[in-house]
């Protein structure tokens, strides 16, 4: 059962200019996306910078106001602040940020950082609070003596784990993880990903995993949305996306992953060249004259592609795939 649904979400930013600073045009950061989130699953949101993926994440947690469209939580709209408060939505949806250096207040001790959501929503005594924070630190594998330290005393991976501890403090249902590991080194990244997976099992959490690293997304996500120019170009299970990508943008993304396979270096190089060619030749089937992405068409139970029409799909299947 999906507990969170997003319907035709649009977020447009006005571009102001001219003498009176009037609205001249809009940036269509998110332009009509649908998305639903089930319990205990991980969803990937992939796209290049500027494609609007972070905007979706921010809108879901309520840091950004939707221009139109609905966010439904258990069937009820949570577009407004008041509705979110009434339904306890803010407690259920938390966020982990990309930049671990700016997402923790440098003047607060770890205990104050992690306890902040607890102080907002739960009435705990000092002792209970300390216990709870210790428990949370334990979950993310941090030593108990970090309680009274400041963020600068920790490394990047440890800070990200503090961020995770803060996000899970209120037993949320959904965590929006915005590029949680892209600032981290490889070995530290592995550690953070492992903790995210472990916590997911323990708390039956859902993740919306925003990333541009297709390797990480493949490792983490059950269902994947590919985003381009503010819209979804393809959505499907991990197998759909990685084994049978249809949209040229997806194909290009996947071809661009640097594979650890030295022997076939030349082959990958050729594939990239070929996909690039396809991208230029077939773009009219996937984007209209204004460069807008078409609506999604269902091609199997789980797999959706944004393509002009069924005919174009056949054309593509015969010529490319």
């Amino acid at each position: 059962m999906s507990f969170l649904e997003i319907k035709d979400l649009k977020v447009h930013y006005p571009i102001r200019g001219g003498f009176f600073h009037t609205i001249q045009d809009y940036t269509y950061a998110v332009d009509g996306v649908d998305l639903s989130i089930d319990e205990g699953k991980t969803y990937g949101l992939i796209g290049e910078s500027g494609s609007g993926k972070t905007t979706i994440g921010k809108t879901i947690v309520g840091l950004e106001k939707p221009t139109s469209g609905k966010i439904l939580y258990n069937g009820q709209t949570v577009n407004s602040k008041r509705a979110r408060k009434k339904l306890g939505y803010n407690k259920e949806v938390q966020m982990i940020f990309q930049d671990v250096f700016s997402s923790l207040d440098p003047r607060k001790k770890v205990i104050d950082i992690i306890a902040e959501p607890l102080r907002n929503y739960e009435n705990l005594t000092k002792e209970e609070e300390r216990k709870k924070v210790l428990e949370l630190l334990n979950i993310v594998g941090m030593p108990g003596d970090s309680l009274y330290k400041y963020p600068h005393e920790f490394s990047g991976g440890q800070r990200q784990r503090i961020g995770i501890a803060r996000a899970i403090a209120l037993n949320p249902k959904l965590i929006v993880a915005d590029e949680p590991v892209s600032a981290l080194d490889l070995s530290v990244q592995a550690q953070v990903l492992n903790y995210l997976k472990k916590i997911q099992k323990e708390f039956n959490l859902s993740y919306l995993f925003i990333s541009h690293d297709l390797g990480v997304v493949k490792h983490m996500c059950d269902y994947i949305y590919i985003m381009h120019r503010g819209r979804f170009v393809e959505a499907g299970t991990r197998e759909d996306i990685y084994n049978n990508p249809i949209h040229i943008y997806t194909r290009r993304l996947i071809a661009a992953i640097p594979e650890i396979d030295v022997k076939n270096k030349e082959k990958y190089y050729m594939i990239r060249k070929k996909v690039e060619e396809e991208y230029n030749n077939y773009s009219s089937l996937f984007y209209d004259e204004d460069g807008k992405v078409f609506d999604l068409i269902q091609i199997s139970d789980t797999h959706y592609v944004a393509i002009k029409d069924k005919e174009a799909l056949k054309n593509v299947e015969n010529n490319i795939a």
């Binding site: 490394s155 490889l186 070995s187 592995a190 490792h219 650890i260």
Partner: peptide, 23 residues
């Protein structure tokens, strides 16, 4: 060897990634 093990790859699905101990 540890670095290569800690990269998420297709055969790492469902498994924990390798973590290098310490800092």
């Amino acid at each position: 060897r540890s670095l290569l093990q800690s990269i998420p790859q297709s055969d790492s699905l469902g498994k924990d990634l390798h973590v290098i101990r310490g800092m």
